[in-house]
Amino acid sequence: MAEEKKNKNPFKSVIWKSIFRVQVPQDRRGRMMQVLNNVFLHLHPVSIPKHAVKVKYTWCMGGLSFFVFLVLTVTGILLMFYYVPTTTRAYTDVIDLAETTPLGIMREIHRWGAHLMVITVWLHMFRVFMTGAYKPPREFNWAIGVILLTLTMLLSFTGYLLPWDQLAIWAITVGSNMAAATPLLGREGPGAALVSIGDINLVTPLSDAKYGLLGEREVRGGALLRFYVFHCIAFPVVIVVFMAVHFWRVRKDGGVSGPL
């Protein structure tokens, strides 16, 4: 009788065990095992110092940046079901996303979220700076942070072209002409003439930084497609890798730094 009763307890059933691997936690060690044995829970530390949860100290800006990034990933994938990155369709597809697509709010969430992420990342960096949290042993994570900031700006820049309106085209025209002014590597940049073999100049309108960025000489369909691929695949993949290193280092460097 007692045996039977025990087996009916769902927390002791085969299904529970196969999913969670450990018994229902009874003590501190059990709770630790529970966290460590779960792929999602283990992303968080088993325990953290009290000051680390103080909103006053971190503003939770790093956490918010990550949260907004997740929102952007989900809404961005949804937008990809309707948006076609060609010069004939891009502009009208974006209008349709707002006006005819069910829950047209998705596009607005993605756009406002993009603005928000840039703001939260800057504020996070500001917080880290003001609390001196970049000091040893956290200098390396500051450097990873700079890469994350750059990738955030690149995601913002490449996404900006996709609506293919006047603002988009001319903003990317201006931005890519700045690339043309890169020292040594830009066709109009200082020292571009130095990069040459004999009389043959290696930095030309068909080989410089601007050309590599756009895939053509001016902003046209090729640049639109290229920015789309960067925006939807290449940069998100790279930023996720660096975020993983960033979060891992936060923990390995002793968790969130303490108040001074």
Partner: peptide, 12 residues
Amino acid sequence: CGRFLFPNVLFE
């Protein structure tokens, strides 16, 4: 990979 991103023919 780098060279691949610099197309040889443009449709202008």
